[in-house]
């Protein structure tokens, strides 16, 4: 089966993501009292192997938080939030916690959950859907655990639609990458939703 999105579908999905990103960033900016710099998201089709290769070569020291999402019409997937190590200590300030009030792990999980759910909630509204989430999980900062998790991922599916969104919070020069993975079984479902929107135009 061909999982690729055609040009119109890709364009439509990108615009939906853009709008979701914009509204989510606005909410975030108000909540965190800062400004979020938006860039154009990228959408690709990846194989399990390709994903672990692309993530593992980025940085030797990084942390990742994983959170599953699922909505109606078979829209589901997993959000990965990828952080460079040096950014971790800025998150506590950003979230408005006192030092020592929560550990770096908790901060990472908190900010990840906020980024993922604000974005996906807006996205869901646009496609007249509603999302449920699993609890976010920190995939240890140790390289071993990370590749184990990626291996597990690629065991569950061969191909996935991968959406990369970059969050840059300017006041804190904090940077993180949100990677949404929609496994092959759900790609058809998202295509159906996209086609319905395209028909309206």
């Amino acid at each position: 089966m061909a999982y690729e999105l055609n040009e119109d579908q890709q364009d439509c999905l990108q615009e939906l993501i853009n709008v979701a990103m914009g509204q989510a960033s606005d909410q975030l900016a108000r909540y965190l009292d800062t400004f979020v710099f938006l860039t154009v998201p990228s959408i690709d089709l990846v194989s399990g192997k390709g994903l672990s290769d692309s993530l593992e070569t980025t940085e030797e020291s990084m942390a990742m938080v994983s959170q599953g999402f699922f909505g109606y019409e078979g829209i589901r997937g997993e959000a990965l939030l990828v952080y460079k190590h040096e950014d971790s200590d800025r998150i506590g300030d950003l979230l408005g916690y006192e030092p020592d009030e929560l550990s770096v792990e908790e901060q990472l999980i908190d900010i990840s959950s906020i980024l993922t759910t604000t974005f996906l909630n807006v996205f869901a509204t646009q496609i007249e859907n509603q999302m449920s989430y699993s609890a976010p999980k920190l995939i240890s900062e140790m390289q071993g655990k990370l590749s184990e998790h990626l291996k597990q991922l690629s065991f569950d599916w061969d191909m996935a639609l991968k959406v990369n969104i970059n969050y840059q919070v300017t006041d804190y020069s904090f940077n993180c990458e949100m990677v949404l993975l929609i496994p092959e079984a759900a790609i058809e479902n998202i295509k159906t939703v996209i086609d319905r929107i395209l028909e309206e135009y």
């Binding site: 009030e101 908790e106 959950s113 906020i114």
Partner: peptide, 27 residues
């Protein structure tokens, strides 16, 4: 309950309308 922490945690639910979590692995 750690009051300030709890209030900040809940603030994100109220302000953003999104769920938030706390796992035994961290607390």
């Amino acid at each position: 309950l750690p009051q300030r922490w709890f209030e900040r945690k809940v603030a994100s639910v109220i302000q953003l309308g999104t769920p938030t979590y706390c796992s035994w692995e961290q607390r």
